[in-house]
Design a protein around this nucleic acid. Structure first.
Lengths: 343, 343
DNA sequence: TAAAATAATGCAACCGATTGTGTAAAGAAA
DNA sequence: TTTCTTTACACAATCGGTTGCATTATTTTA
């Protein structure tokens, strides 16, 4: 295991009595280099164990073939699938993926954005931290022509690419499904977030579905949580089950919450779905394992990651015009399983 | 959103009538620069919006402050927690983390290792692909003094850092616990892997615990699976439940398998833990949500990631001697929950 | 066969920060 | 005041590919 210096194109050039420019071009099949030379150079490079130095190339060309990913956390099924999609797509075009977790902290997000910028990433994919209200820390990317794609948790009124689902429509579909199953008093769990936010959109979908189908909106059936943890879900569920006539349905904007509701119901002897139908959101792995397994809304995490990565790459390679920062909507579907199937 | 060229130390140097070397040193508080100059330089850099170019620094110093992570997939709770630990620790020392997924493919792993090497990562953390028998594709790192840490799925007889748990001991403890609960015919699910592999170590622990406590080893109680999916787990469980006297306990080397067994048991009217006690492995989130919740072995994923990252960083910053490529063992504990509590 | 056109390769600047060495300026000791 | 130290900064090479332009070799056309 002796340490040996990296082989460079200079070494190859010297050995073959050629110029480094020729080596550089030969290695990437430049048309102005003869086939004979190309073959010879590649063979020698191989023999000498040449490994191109990405840094040098990146410095010269000011592009790093690296995508920065800035998300709240990677230990959530949705987000880890998202990254998986990004990574797979990036890799196909030989891009690397660097990950940073904001842990939903605004300050961390700001610092990490800076850090990504410093490392000259070729593009950035971001799902905003919960705390983030202001997105000016992303201006550095736009100002320097670094493609930026927001995914899932996107800012409003910021002119960049966005890859999202239609949260309003998805929520509407979910609630509509419960109504179709005969539910009359449908509860909802949400989180206090400003207008336009994903959870707010879902809430809007819930409200509209209720009112547009002749049901009455009951504020007592809407529980607002600060954090969407399992424990909080249990608290919320208990609150709902303490109501005089308990609700007969629940639209939870996340599967973990749905699970907590189902389990709390079971503990209190409330039958799911007969007495209490539940539909979640995301199609997390757990939703199909729990018993009864949970109806949910599919959330194409991996596809979203893939789409985001494609936008970045196409934009860099200029296969796509970068005039319009369009929004990409991906499809969601109602996945009916046991927890909501009354009929 | 006009595009503006990046500000460099040359720009600062020109503005202040100083040499770039002075700027460079001033920015990092070099002792040979006067405080006055340092202050002036930093202020100007700030004003001009200077962002250091990591690439240039990396090229010059041949170090990138980047840790490459090469793992089978990130969508497994254990591995995403591992990455989380790596990222958090790396970030504290201002290191970036690039992720690649081998998807348990040997070829992908080889290519990705190359790719990481090309991008001159400062260190590599790897959990081996299932397919991987041969680790020569990691020689390039050792040969060039790039610290390499294997985590969890580590190769045998390869002189690098390793961060692992004692799989043998953990399995032994798990089975011992079942025995303590009164189990006599304990089943085990495993996968066909060579000697020294993690699953094999767990199997060894299982076998020794059985034999050393006066129980008889029964080959029919050991099911070997190709892949450790939920569906395969159901198949394995059904096989076990088809035996004349069914086993009265199961040590599953993963929580998903344990869950599949518990649920299959319930479907067949077998009571858990009364008729069939189950203990899993990893302490995946699902294990404490499922009902009955599953006893398991804690697997300190995030700590392992943290430890691995620390080894890399300490090694680079030479805070640690890099002579001995020691093995770091992290603790595991038996987490007793409902699925195994007979007493 | 000379001139023109094309192909193949070389030269050298460049990307931006780092750092060993050299030098001028300022202060201390003689 | 002169000499010796420090202190503070400048010079210039370096990391390793990349690329515009110049030059030489080869082939085609006149």
């Amino acid at each position: 295991m002796e340490e040996h210096r990296h082989i460079t194109i200079y070494d190859i050039a010297e050995k073959l009595n050629l110029a480094t420019s020729t080596i550089s071009r030969a290695l990437k099949d430049h048309p102005s280099i003869s086939d004979k030379t190309i073959k010879k150079v590649k063979k020698t490079a191989e023999e000498m164990g040449f490994v191109p130095n990405t840094l040098a190339a990146g410095l010269r060309g000011n592009k790093t073939k690296t995508i920065g990913v800035l998300i709240p956390t990677i230990t959530q099924p949705f987000l880890s699938s998202l990254i998986s999609g990004i990574e797979i797509t990036a890799r196909k075009s030989d891009y690397s993926v660097v990950i940073m977790q904001s842990h939903d902290s605004y300050n961390d997000e700001v610092n990490m954005a800076r850090s990504l910028f410093k490392s000259r990433v070729s593009g950035v994919i971001c799902s905003l931290a919960m705390e983030t209200k202001n997105t000016s820390h992303f201006d550095q990317f736009s100002a320097n022509n670094v493609p930026l794609v927001f995914v899932d948790r996107v800012p409003k009124g910021y002119n960049t690419f966005r890859v999202v689902i239609d949260n309003y429509a998805a929520a509407y579909k979910a609630v509509k499904h419960l109504i179709d199953q005969g539910c009359k008093r449908i509860a909802h769990i949400t989180t206090g977030s400003e207008f336009g936010h994903l959870y707010n959109e879902r809430k809007r979908g819930y409200i509209d579905a209720i009112t547009e189908h002749g049901l009455t909106l009951d504020d007592n059936l809407i529980i607002t949580l600060k954090t969407m943890t399992y424990e909080e879900g249990v608290r919320a569920s208990n609150k709902l089950f303490d109501l005089k006539p308990i609700p007969d349905g629940l639209f939870a904007p996340g599967d973990l919450l749905a699970v907590s509701a189902v389990q709390t119901a079971k503990k209190r002897g409330i039958k799911v779905p007969e007495d209490f139908a539940v539909i979640g959101f995301n199609n997390d792995p757990i939703s199909e394992i729990i018993e009864p397994n949970i109806s949910t809304i599919t959330h194409p995490a991996e596809k979203m990651g893939s789409a985001a990565a494609s936008i970045i790459i196409d934009n860099i390679e200029k296969r796509r015009e970068d005039e319009a920062k369009e929004i990409t909507f991906l499809n969601t579907e109602v996945l009916i399983r046991e927890s909501s199937k009354k009929l």
